[in-house]
């Protein structure tokens, strides 16, 4: 699948400093939906897409990982990514969420909601140039 997830998790550690595209610095736990939206707007070439979780299951190919199935953007394109269960995703209007909030708390000290089917996550794509 042409999707990538960060392999170095340190930016999810509570207290990690995140630089928005506006130059503003925020802690990872303080980020809000609008921070991502505005950052994409001023970045140029990047677009925030709404990615709805449509299925969550254990990865068949990579034991220990979770396969997350998304429908992405207006075209409802199907994308699947394999991630560790503690990997946080930012859900619109809700904030950080993961398949295993307990593991996320243990590893990153980052408070998460349970990620569920129907959640709409923040993702980015390259903006289509006409």
């Amino acid at each position: 699948a042409p999707a990538s997830a960060p392999s170095n998790p340190s930016h999810f550690m509570k207290g990690a400093i995140i630089q928005l595209a506006t130059g503003e610095l925020k802690r990872v736990e303080d980020l809000q939906t609008q921070d991502f939206v505005r950052s994409a707007e001023v970045s140029g070439g990047l677009k925030i897409d709404s990615s709805m979780v449509v299925d969550i299951r254990a990865s068949q190919q990579k034991p220990g990982l979770v396969s997350l199935h998304f429908t992405v953007g207006e075209q409802q394109s199907k994308v699947t990514i394999d991630v560790p269960p503690e990997h946080p995703f930012f859900v619109f209007g809700q904030g950080w969420s993961s398949c295993s909030p307990e593991r996320t708390a243990q590893l990153y000290d980052l408070a998460c909601h349970p990620l569920q089917v129907g959640d709409v996550c923040v993702s980015i794509t390259l903006q289509q140039q006409p």
């Binding site: 699948a1 042409p2 999707a3 990538s4 997830a5 960060p6 340190s10 930016h11 999810f12 990690a16 400093i17 995140i18 630089q19 928005l20 595209a21 610095l25 990872v28 980020l31 921070d35 991502f36 950052s39 970045s43 990047l46 897409d49 990615s51 998304f70 992405v72 953007g73 075209q75 394109s77 199907k78 994308v79 990514i81 946080p88 995703f89 930012f90 996550c121 923040v122 993702s123 980015i124 794509t125 390259l126």
Partner: peptide, 25 residues
């Protein structure tokens, strides 16, 4: 008191997945 001064700063886009559609026109 140790004041952390060399705190790494991560770009915002490293936090969200890059989900490229598998189907294109």
């Amino acid at each position: 008191n140790v004041e952390p001064r060399s705190v790494p700063v991560f770009p915002w886009h490293s936090l969200v997945p890059f989900l490229a559609p598998t189907q294109s026109d």
